[in-house]
Design a protein around this nucleic acid. Sequence first.
RNA 1: GCUCAAGUGGCGGAAUUGGUAGACGCGCCGGAUUCAAAAUCCGGUUCUUCGGAGUGUGGGUUCGAUUCCCACCUUGAGUACCA
Length: 998
Amino acid sequence: MRYNFNEIEAKWQKYWAENQTFKAENQSEKPKFYVLDMFPYPSGAGLHVGHPLGYIASDIYARYKRHQGFNVLHPQGYDSFGLPAEQYAIQTGQHPAITTETNIATYRRQLDQIGFSFDWSREVRTSDPSYYKWTQWIFIQLFNSWYNNDSNKAEDISTLTNIFSSEGNSKVNAVCDDAIATFSAEDWKAFDAVKQQQILLQYRLTYLAETEVNWCPALGTVLANDEIVNGVSERGGHPVIRKKMTQWSMRISAYAERLLQGLETIDWTDSLKESQRNWIGKSVGAAVTFNLKNHSEVIEVFTTRPDTIFGVSFMTLAPEHELVSKITTQEQKAEVEAYIEATAKRSERDRIADVKTISGAFTGAYAEHPFTKQPIPVWIGDYVLAGYGTGAVMSVPCGDQRDYDFAKHFNIPIPNIFENADISQEAYASKDNVVIANSDFLNGLNYKEATKKAIQELEKLGQGQGKTNYRLRDAVFSRQRYWGEPFPVYYINGMPQMIDAKHLPIRLPEVEKYLPTETGEPPIGNATVWAWDTNKNEVVSNDLIDNKTIHPLELNTMPGWAGSSWYFNRYMDSQNNEEFASKEALNYWKDVDLYIGGSEHATGHLLYSRFWQKFLFDKGEVPVDEFAKKLINQGMILGTSAFVYKISLIWPKTSRHNDNLDYLNQISSKFPSIFCSKNYYEKSLHEDISLRDIAKDFKLPSLSSFIGTLDPVKVKIEQLSFGEYQLHADVSFVNASDELDIEAFKNWREEYKKAEFICEEDGTFKVKREVEKMSKSKYNVVNPDQICIDYGADSLRLYEMFLGPLEQYKPWNTAGITGVHGFLKKLWKLYVGENGLLVNDAEPSKDNLKTLHKTIKKVEEDIENFSFNTSVSTFMIAANELTAQKCTSKEILEPLLILISPYAPHIAEELWNQLGNNKSISTAPFPKFNASYLVESSKNYPISFNGKMRFTLELPMDMSKEAIEAAVMANEKTQEQLQGRTPKKVIVVPGKIVNIVG
RNA sequence: GCUCAAGUGGCGGAAUUGGUAGACGCGCCGGAUUCAAAAUCCGGUUCUUCGGAGUGUGGGUUCGAUUCCCACCUUGAGUACCA
């Protein structure tokens, strides 16, 4: 019997599905283990071989944990709201729900054929109303909460209104909008409902505010900070501008410190934690108030270096700072206004790109130093950002390079307040080895002491206190899109009202057009049925809006990260219609034990999810405040693109002034498609080869006839030269030796049908290879479907793991798969011969046992350390050894299958079944490792004398260190080497080496 | 600029955390089988001027360094005027 992988894999996939082999129960005697993948967005292109990498790793771990006796939860679902489906809808008019459904079907088929042990009964889809009902519900909970800094957690908004009506807001220590006016209990009671709501909105954890947002005109929507890369949108690379809009925001800043602290408690990679720390951007320092000369206004600054306060020689405000217009003197007005206008014109990108140019203007105003009372000139400069801290800095040129550069540029004095620091060339920005000088009461102190002392003295004056600043901004939560969760919000007098949770979900309305409306409103503005009837508690037609009982609904939808910020909790009890998950399920599964996904979500999904989890924890909805104990980032599998070089015509240098421009255009359109092979291209790079030479050398008929049609009067052949440009060829036309299948390539595109090829000397056409991200547009996508047909899912799984370390980026190369495929064939032959099963009850030999136990030990270690690549090698060695040993013993071959089963489950299940087991291999316990089988009777110990001379000595394996040492010293070869000298020491590493140090 | 990660044969990558560097696979070379090819099996494969040399470069610690320390170079990723 041959190894018929297609038949075997189909058979067991069917069996697992029919028997619900991997269904997890919410109660069990066994300990729980939750293995989660980041769920995919089901794009129209389907899966390529890069996608399943993380899923294979998590599947191996999940299957391994089942063998270890855990009750394993290993679910899968779809993050099915998103921009591509909507873009597709805009182009084709097809409803995103339909395309999403189709795409999910493709994904499911592709995932199934790889043989994952997912519990599909728990599948979630973020775009399913039964799911987003709870996303809406969580939104309402956030709206009804505020963050109390005293209890350091989110509390119900009713506790806040109670405080307001009993004592006003002066003692409330909340995370809220800046600059809220204080009011008394009487004031509060006197406010009308709208006023009260306006005030509460400034405290709620999700709030409506006019904020400056990142508006992307091309996408017609706002974007969060983490959706922008280098000043352009992450999706599509469109420009992004700053714009003031009324938007929903999430008060994630309330959780900045806890998000930072929580990182200490979870086992995530250091680089990922580092990204989150940078994103949160905590800086400890002081807030300092500078009084202005001749003004009642004050300037608030934030500084991390209060110790350098005596080094202040000027102040700098951001050009957008509100004080600028108030304090600028008459004489400086023109200059300041011109500067503000100039900076406003510069886009965000220009400002980032051009950091080196120093610019600014003097306002004419002077602040007063809090201690010396000396006047300090106030400048404006665009190196100070309006959005960070207070938008104003105290400039200490001797201690900060930017201040230093600014001072140098504008000839502002640079007083030195450091002992022994040379500031003639650059600022001394280090905090180490600081000794403060010329600073009154701070003289002689170091950074730490001086900082403390300075803050104390500022507090005495009432002009400052210690302060911690975070870079983390509140996250904008509105998107002007169709294909997202609708807000459960309607408006009365412009104030948002939550729809009662019992009426959820609020389903997406039908629209005819998915583009934003002409007035710039979101696509839902196109819906005709989108108003809320507070009598009937249902969505009704817009025409009925009467502002009494029928009100307009929110037109925006939620961003992509809304649904993905809590899905891991939903898997615990995904069919529940009463709660997002039952308390029993939440308390049983608690958190994700192992989470596998890409590192690109470091400051998006992974931060927002931690935020929502902490919020739900505060509200008592979930039992733990970190949702994932351990996280692994799988690396990306890259594609190996193939390039061909197409010869193009280069205009003669004189063409710009050529009278026959029309003619030249005309002939260039008739230029034939000619491709040249890699080596020819490389040769031509350095040699100027003319068209005529190509035609002559390669006897290309199309080129000869092209030259023949040239009008020698209008253009001379000698005037024309050629260049090449490289373009992607589909990798499926290229074999392992980089040779292009010319016929297939010709048939690829209509315009290549008559193309001609300049080949290598051996007649082949070679492409140039380059490793790039795998993508449809680069024609380097390898489809797992074809791999499964040609080699089987087990080969695919093994090979993806074998490629290299899980976390690493690595290129895909289909050629190498024959190695692991050969192993599976060999494995099969170890069990099944021409005439049936080879396995019998024979006593295992010592060698057999040694091979098995060596393998058990290595595989167990590998899986625990996520080094899945090396266990594939271990399997190959085991199969080779057992084949050489002619092992037929069931005692050896049966446990071997359990070791292989997480990696190659189909073949393992089939052979397991053939050995006479009628329960799935997934229920079998992992074999126990026994070290005694590995101990050999003797071993050759290499002896090294002073690291130079070497010989070997045969000694029993189970000797103690001391016994080995004695035996080595007693040996005559050793004595020979020592020549009567006494060694300083003898170093013994058991089983390894003996070193004699002379 | 800053932060993090990584540099080992023709290639992907191993090396029990300081102990015989190059496991395993690809590729390549040779052989067996075959009328022949495919498939399969077996052997070889870091370089070498055959003395040795060798894990990006130069130092250091050590009896011993791919592994630890210092400096530098290169590549990749993230971040960016954060006061």
